[in-house]
Design a protein around this nucleic acid. Structure first.
Lengths: 193, 193
DNA sequence: CCTACCGATCGGTAGG
DNA sequence: CCTACCGATCGGTAGG
């Protein structure tokens, strides 16, 4: 039987992942050192290695945790007509990004730093979210050839995901304002295609 | 007085920048080594340092060269009604990206690896291209509040720039097909806003 | 334009 | 004899 763990085991893991996300976002995965992550946690490097077997495992934890939140947000979109679902998804994603800018940036920029197997798992989860949008596109624009359905879905994610380069969640345009503008452009644009 | 230079001086610099762009795109700036760049050029590490004072200067050259091409493409868009200019710009950018996928990826992913002054210069050049789209937006949707004009322009670039994550230039959808779809969605979407 | 190196710092692990 | 953690240092490699 396993013996007792530190009472705050999960809390500590979460703190490490959080600090790592901020560092990886600011300086890049390869440039940020484990020593910096440890310092940001007020702990020793050995403590980090007690909780994670390696630096790369921390990167994977950052991405997996963020993707799990995105998938949950996508699944929480209520049933209804496709345009409503798309608006709801845009809003849910923008709200998720607003509170997780660092994790979002890491997910988008550091995928190549993962070994093939783990990268494939992340990509598969991303594709699951994309697939939900492809279904909406098929419903909104039935005349669109299947080949362009995927492209259309990716143009939607382009508008949404690119926001991390220019959008300030604390600025005058909140997550809902951006989500509405994205959904409006996409829905009217698709309909006219 | 300056002594003579190698006859193929510019050619060699271009080769270094090209090899570096491929390496930086594939492994990231921090993870790619100068030794790898040298090997890709069939040269020694010292040869690289003869042509560029440091690794970061090579990164800057990759970005500057690519942005110069993008700016030239943007300036080559002929005068006319804003919708026509936007369609032409989308096509010009997609054609530029099609032949420079590695440079495009480096420009989008490694900006943080540049020191503040140089990063500011790159950002300023990017903003110049964005400004041309803001002018088009103002012409297409005069009712749109100025504050949302910038956001709309960035949503356009989101669709365009995000293509580097999913689009295969050699696939069934060529640069013109993507550009047309982007322009159609954006123009119809904006008009209805 | 190369080989031979340097100061520094990396990710990861030893003993206690 | 366990888990949780520390100070110190390992072998190897980075940019220059």
């Amino acid at each position: 039987m396993a013996r007792t763990q530190a009472a705050d085991y999960d809390e500590r893991r979460a703190k490490i992942v959080h600090a790592a996300a901020a560092l990886f976002a600011a300086r890049g995965f390869a440039s940020a050192s484990v020593a910096e992550i440890a310092a940001a946690c007020g702990a020793s490097k050995s403590l980090i290695y007690h909780y994670y077997p390696g630096k790369e495992d921390i990167l994977f934890a950052v991405m997996e945790g963020h993707l799990a939140a995105l998938l949950a947000a996508a699944r929480a979109v209520p049933d209804g007509p496709a345009p409503d679902r798309l608006r709801a998804l845009a809003g849910a994603l923008m709200h998720e990004y607003a509170g997780a800018a660092a994790r979002q940036k890491v997910l988008l920029n550091e995928l190549d730093q993962l070994p093939p197997e783990r990268r494939a798992r992340i990509v598969a989860e991303q594709r699951a979210i994309v697939a939900t949008v492809e279904v909406m596109v098929a419903e909104i624009a039935p005349a669109l050839p299947p080949r362009q359905r995927f492209a259309a879905a990716m143009l939607f994610f382009g508008m949404i995901n690119w926001t991390h380069t220019w959008w300030n969640p604390a600025g005058p345009l909140g997550p809902d304002a951006i989500a509405q503008q994205v959904a409006a452009i996409f829905l009217h644009g698709l309909h006219a295609s």
